[in-house]
Design a binder for these strands. Sequence first.
DNA 1: TCCAGATGTAATCGGTGATTACTTCTAACC
DNA 2: GGTTAGAAGTAATCACCGATTACATCTGGA
Lengths: 207, 207
Amino acid sequence: MSKTYHHGDLPKALIAAASAIVEEAGVEALSVRAVAKRVGVSPGAPFRHFASRDALLAAVAGQAMERLATAVEAGQLKTDADPLEQIRMIGTAYLRWVAEHPTQFAIISQRNLVPLEGTARKQNDAIRDRMMALLTMARSHGHLRHDADPAAVLLSCRALVYGLSRMLIDGHFPEWSPEGDPLDWMQRSLDHFIRDLRPGPGQEAGE
Amino acid sequence: MSKTYHHGDLPKALIAAASAIVEEAGVEALSVRAVAKRVGVSPGAPFRHFASRDALLAAVAGQAMERLATAVEAGQLKTDADPLEQIRMIGTAYLRWVAEHPTQFAIISQRNLVPLEGTARKQNDAIRDRMMALLTMARSHGHLRHDADPAAVLLSCRALVYGLSRMLIDGHFPEWSPEGDPLDWMQRSLDHFIRDLRPGPGQEAGE
DNA sequence: TCCAGATGTAATCGGTGATTACTTCTAACC
DNA sequence: GGTTAGAAGTAATCACCGATTACATCTGGA
C-alpha cells in the first residue's frame, strides 16, 4: 500500500491544513476534527503534536506572523532614503499585506490568543527598533517638529497603521469612509499622517 | 411559593447575566447554558427570546455600544472650545472608556460579529458627523494645514484612537511601550497627534 | 370562566475539545 | 539481523455546547 501508517510530517501537514481552513472559512471555522479530516487522519491524532486547539492555532499564527514581518522587511529597501519616507514604506507594506491576508491578520493580532514568540518575536522587535532609530534620525535631521517625542510618535505610527488594519478586518470602513477602496483610504490616511509629522511647508497656514 | 413559573423579565435578566459573564471571564466564556444557569432557568429557555448565542451577544454588545457612545458624548461639553481641542476630548473620552471596560469593547469592535444598528448606530453616526464638522471648521479657521483633507484626517483620528484601543485589549503595549501606564501612553500619543495636525509653532524646525 | 398565546421545561441531536487505552510502525542498539 | 523501546496514529469515550422539538405551565383578555 502506498499509504504508510505513519504520516510523513503530520505537524507540518496539520499547520498547512489549518491555515487553509482559516483562509477559506475564517478563524471560528477551525476545529481539530476538521483539520484531522482534511489531512486524512483520526480526530485524536493532532493532539499528539498540539496540546490543544489553541496550540494549533498558535502555530498557524506564528507562521502568518513571520510572513507579515517578512513582507514588511521586504517593503523597506532603499536605506538611504528620507527616514520618514522609510517609515511610510514600512506602514504601506504592512497595510498592503493585511489587505491581502485579512483572515491571517485576524489571528495574529490578538496576543492573548496567540503569544508573540520565536522568530516572529525577533522580527517584530527588529522592525520596532528600526522604526525608533528612523524616528530619532528624522528628529536629529530636522524632519520632525523640534519638540516631538520619538517614543510617542512611534506609538502613534504603530497605532495608526494597526488601527487602520483592524478597522478593515472588523468591518468599520463602511461607516468611516463610505466611498472608494478601503486600501486607498488607508494609504491616504497614512500619507497624511506622515506628512503632518514634518515641520514642513504647512507654515503659510492662512491659505 | 415566591418563585413564579414565569420569570419577571427574562430578556433583561439574560442580558445582565451575559454581560456579567463576559465582564468576568471574557467573550469566549459566554455560553447560552451558562447564562441560563446563572439566571436559574432551563438551558433552552433563552432561545425563546434570543434566536442564537450570537443574538444574545449582539444584545449585550448593543448595550455596551450605547454606553460607549454616551460616554463619548458626555466627554465633549464645552461647545465653544477650539475644534481640534474638542476632537481631542472626544478621543480622550473614548480611550478612557475602553481602558475602563476592555471586555465590553472587545465585543463591540467586531462588526461582523455584531452589526451596528439601532440607537447605537445613530449615536455613532452623530459622533462621526460631529467630528467631520469640527474638522472642516478647524480647517476654515486655519487650525489645520491649508492643504489638509478633512476626510483623510477624520479617518486618521478614528484609526489612531481605535488602534490604541485595540492595542490595549489585544495586549500589544508590552511590545510598543515597555514602561509606564498604557493609558498615559495612549493619551500622550493622541495629544501628540492632535498637535501635529496644527500648522502651528513647529515652524522653527532647526531647534 | 375559559381558552389562546406566550413562556419555560425536558429530552434530544449533532458537533466539538479533550482524554484514555490500545494498536502499529520506526529506528536504534546489541 | 533480530529485538525492543518509544514515537505515532487509532478508536472509544466523556463532558460541554448550540440548537430544535414536543410538552407543560402560566397569564391576560373576551
